[in-house]
């Protein structure tokens, strides 16, 4: 099993979750986060005062999937979240040692 973590633009959340639902991915965890990558934020003039927006609002998405589905899920997130412009975000995949469902105690694939 793997966990797929993606940092995406907030407005891409809906297309990404719609696409994941179509794939029958059952559990998604979201967080509202702020950060920057190579773009290093940008500077804005806000109500007359210039200030630096070092961290931009992003959404962090986490999905746990079976090994067999990892590639499909990663690709669908990439496709749905891409605008082709700077700041589209990142996606990475990590292995999972153990997965358990707290309510029942089921483990491994059964807990997905």
């Amino acid at each position: 099993m793997k966990i797929v973590i993606a940092i995406i633009k907030p407005f891409k959340l809906e297309p990404v979750t719609d696409a994941l639902r179509a794939l029958d991915v059952s559990g998604i965890t979201l967080s509202e986060v702020r950060g920057h990558g190579r773009q290093r934020g940008h500077t804005e003039v806000y109500r007359g005062a210039e200030y630096e927006v070092a961290y931009l609002p992003k959404v962090r998405l986490e999905v746990v999937v079976d090994d067999a589905d990892v590639e499909r899920v990663a690709n669908i997130i990439m496709d749905a979240a891409r605008t082709g412009k700077i700041g589209d975000g990142k996606l990475w995949i990590q292995p999972i040692e153990t997965l358990m469902r707290i309510r029942t105690g089921e483990a491994g694939r059964d807990a997905l």
């Binding site: 907030p10 509202e32 986060v33 702020r34 804005e44 806000y46 927006v53 931009l56």
Partner: peptide
């Protein structure tokens, strides 16, 4: 009205 949301709305209004 988390800072996250507030910033998005600010950006839009700007």
């Amino acid at each position: 009205w988390s800072p996250w949301r507030a910033q998005l709305v600010d950006d839009l209004v700007e």
